[in-house]
Write a protein that binds this DNA or RNA. Structure first.
Lengths: 191, 191
DNA sequence: ATTATATTAGACTGGTCGGTTTAATTATTT
DNA sequence: AAATAATTAAACCGACCAGTCTAATATAAT
């Protein structure tokens, strides 16, 4: 096996385009044209076609976002400020042209949750790993196990919803309002 | 003009199918087949085709959800409990076969926010009217204007994200966790 | 009843979809 | 250098897409 740059390029392009336009909104030809790769190569690396490429693209998107979250927590000790920082970064990245966030995993999950089990499952894994990363960080910062878990899911939901609102309204406002609420939500009360 | 039941049937079917599978995931033929209407009728009532039908379907979905929210607030005075009730109803409706929630507006907004301005604008209107309804109810219940507005957006984001997580994981858990957090979020502190 | 209008009906079009196939070419191994 | 395997290349396929068109039919107005 040599250097399968072609395969990596396909996954990266698919990750970006699916994030921006969803699964049904992007054709294989769109992906191939963007990086100038013939269809034969795609079916060489992904014999099961679009679905297989999408599942790998979802894993790739998942890893990108995991690294973003991890980075905020590493640079900023306080979990409250780390989450706020992550949201601010997302807001800034929304318009980015080299690495646009789009609606990571959300679009493809919304489209295919009921009709494509491998894709739904890959999206579920992404959501679970993201929320578990938040939970781990909260737990490490002294939150109870239950609270850390619930906050992980809650924060993820609020961020996903906030991205969707910001994209739709073409404004960072929704995400910034959510970031401002974070300190009041992440209290260490027991419940 | 007689009784344009055909037009209403088209909008209702489109509203339901777009909610479940998104804009690109449903063809005009899918919609027509479901309610046994010929293509000529569709283009008679919607000369601008799929886009025009989608915009009206989005408005219809918006109105359905507005009525759901309104109903919870009318039956339950306390805004905290009303929001919780609304989320519990959504969780129960997720699997409904006659009126499935799907991911209302979210899917189509995620798909088309950057490529179809009339659709993006219709989705924005839906999100704005929903969050403004929450805000109005909070304000009427004694929250400050600023707090009512921020909470309206925040609650909407959390609910949209929660629906997406629940659909993807095939579990009500995410929505129920969010409902449990509502009392702690909707405090009347000033900030 | 007759005209005019609203609506239904579905065959048809050009284009694009995901996917297949076969051959040419490049790289690796022996 | 010869043989083998990996990869590229693009023409091609049937299915389906949104949208068009023309004719038939029902409804309303006169």
């Amino acid at each position: 096996m040599a250097k399968p740059n072609t395969k990596v390029a396909l996954i990266e392009a698919a990750s970006r385009l699916f994030r921006l336009h969803g699964y049904e909104g992007i054709s294989l030809n769109d992906i191939l044209k963007e990086i100038n790769i013939p269809k034969g190569s795609l079916y060489h690396y992904f014999p099961n076609g679009k679905e297989e490429l999408a599942v790998e693209a979802i894993h790739h998107t998942k890893d990108i976002v995991l690294a973003w979250i991890e980075e905020s927590f590493e640079q900023i000790g306080d979990p409250v400020k780390a989450v706020q920082d992550h949201i601010h970064q997302l807001a800034a990245l929304l318009k980015d042209e080299t690495e646009p966030v789009g609606f990571p995993i959300g679009t493809i999950a919304a489209e295919k949750y009921s009709t494509n089990e491998p894709i739904r499952s890959a999206c579920q894994t992404a959501f679970e790993e993201w929320s578990e990363l938040y939970s781990t960080k909260f737990f490490e910062a002294g939150y109870s196990e239950k609270l850390a878990k619930d906050y992980g899911i809650f924060i993820l939901a609020a961020i996903e919803g906030g991205i969707l609102l910001s994209l739709t309204t073409k404004s960072e406002e929704s995400l910034l309002i959510i970031a401002n609420q974070i300190p009041f939500i992440l209290s260490k009360r027991e419940n």
